[in-house]
Nucleic acid binder design. Structure first.
Lengths: 169, 169
DNA sequence: ACAATTTATTTTAAGATTAAAACAATTGCC
DNA sequence: GGCAATTGTTTTAATCTTAAAATAAATTGT
């Protein structure tokens, strides 16, 4: 197409050259790799040391922060998983005695889920060790680097939310 | 426990206070949130616009980078998923005509997977749009912020690998 | 009050995912 | 050459996950 015949000054470049977003793509792949790497290791250790799955641990973590319990919808939003997913997960955690389920006193559609004593005790002891694992996994970053990463991820989160909200109109 | 009675100078603090790793935990949760947010949106758009799942897209992305094909083991390592997982995924992509499977000429145990013409064409057109989505999702970060995030994630990746390698001995 | 809409959950069907065991072929070692 | 260990894949069983449809209760508009 005789590209070399077209003089590419800044102006024509902006119009003629499709933008290259390989850099953002690499950034996304690296973000995904970090998460997958850490998540996989946490999953492996949870299974190995406590014979618990990550979804079960995550669900208990949410409930531990809500002493009065939460509805399935709240859990679903917090955990960013589908409602149907939670139904099965909750089912198994009730069966194993870690959580209790009761009908909301104010809304007969809603189920309020909360940790049992056993569930809370087990979770707390797992969480203590889990915290050390995470600290170790991020251990090579300085305090300054961690806080800078925190800031950039906060901005990324807002950026993504903006892009997602803008899309759905 | 009359904590206020104990003078906490730097020295006793280091010995008596169990280290607090809440900050690292928050960092991890934020990393996870960003990934989940972006991944969920990409998954949703892939289904909506191309009727394809993210795992299928990811697998084709790997193959597109390897014109001569890859073995299942290579794919498994690159994608950081189990071998068994790939067997089913590959099965479905062969059935839909996107990839081809052949026995390795040098190793009769190994299967070499590669994109068909259809698969490659379809993937390329999806990938072009996908790249724009990603650019938009990270759109509020400046070039400088993106490169700093890239650097910090590279360091995080190395840190995690170090922690994982150290653990498995 | 009552019809329409929204909200909360469950069910269903399909696919994705893992860990562990089974199987098959190759490689390394003697 | 032959045996042990390793490597590549598949199978199996269980769990996880989603999207979409179904169900049920609450809320809204008139």
């Amino acid at each position: 197409m005789d590209d070399h015949a077209i003089p590419l000054d800044a102006e024509t470049k902006a119009v003629e050259m499709p933008e290259d977003h390989r850099e953002e793509l690499r950034l996304w792949l690296r973000l995904l790799t970090c998460t997958t790497l850490i998540e996989g290791e946490v999953r492996r250790r949870l299974r190995e040391k406590f014979d618990v799955t990550l979804p079960r641990f995550d669900l208990m973590a949410q409930l531990d922060k809500a002493p009065d319990g939460m509805t399935l919808s709240d859990l679903s939003k917090r955990m960013m998983v589908s409602n149907g997913n939670l139904t099965g997960l909750v089912e198994r955690l009730v069966a194993s005695g870690h959580i209790a389920r009761m009908v909301s006193p104010t809304d007969r559609r809603a189920m309020v889920i909360s940790l049992t004593k056993t569930g809370r005790d087990e979770f707390r002891s797992m969480a203590a060790e889990h915290e050390h694992w995470i600290a170790d996994l991020f251990g090579d970053l300085s305090a300054k680097e961690r806080s800078e990463l925190m800031r950039l991820l906060a901005k990324t989160k807002l950026s993504a939310r903006r892009a997602i909200a803008g899309d759905e109109q």
